[in-house]
Design a protein around this nucleic acid. Structure first.
Lengths: 126, 126
DNA sequence: TCGAACCCTCACATTGATGTGAAGGTCCAC
DNA sequence: GTGGACCTTCACATCAATGTGAGGGTTCGA
């Protein structure tokens, strides 16, 4: 598929798809005319990249961890260097802390909303 | 306490503390000399702001939700306008999705790390 | 009273993720 | 064969979160 379709199916601008490619997060074949050509799995890939980005990871890190997250659990150990391992461990912990913070604050918001709902319910009668 | 101490205790640069104030995320008294003067709770406040920021929320949103998150469960309903409620609900859901994505990918990384560890363990013998 | 170590404001620089638009090639349907 | 809807690259713009430094005041201890 071409970039327009991928953009539509992933809800991502063409500009960003090119940017992700430039950052090494996705790859694309090229047709004889220079047009980018994507395969079906690219859709999931882009969605995952967007999720990670939205979760707050920078492209630099995403590029590093993506190879470890590929579905066919082949578990590549291409260059599981100590630095790489350290980066992953650090990132795993960062993600844990981040998620905790997120959930903690989300719960606080939910709690507030519940209180508001109850308040409104009482105020307007049942 | 003055800005230097707060910076040190929160691991945040003075510049950023001033920025957060400019964005309305924290407040500071002023001494007769113009120096900012912070109270003890400011420390937690700054830490929470940093957590939310790190969790990916923009200052604009943080400013909106912070009042709902204040500890003394006074539950202010200063201006619980419908728009405000909608914003909060949307943000709550966004945070949930974000956290899920984060945890899903974190688990994938953890799984990978486990596999690597096992691989290394086997390879080097016990 | 001098210097170090604070503080202030202002303003420009940078980085990452994006938007936008120009200048131009390709493909297809009419 | 022309127009519209694609695609290409390049480059400049933007926005939020930060860094950095200039120019200048305050506080305090030696």
């Amino acid at each position: 598929m071409r970039i327009g379709e991928l953009a539509e199916r992933t809800g991502t601008s063409r500009r960003l798809l090119r940017y992700y490619e430039e950052q090494g997060l996705i790859v694309a074949d090229r047709g004889p005319n220079g047009y980018r050509d994507y395969d079906e799995p690219s859709v999931d890939r882009v969605i995952q990249v967007r999720g990670l980005l939205d979760a707050g990871l920078p492209t630099r890190i995403i590029k590093q961890i993506l190879p470890c997250l590929d579905k066919p659990r082949t578990i590549y150990f291409p260059d599981a260097t100590p630095e790489m391992i350290a980066t992953l461990e650090a990132e795993r912990d960062r993600m844990t802390r981040r998620a905790e913070c997120l959930l903690r604050n989300r719960d606080a918001i939910a709690e507030y909303l519940d209180a508001v709902r109850e308040y409104d319910g009482v105020r307007s009668g049942s």
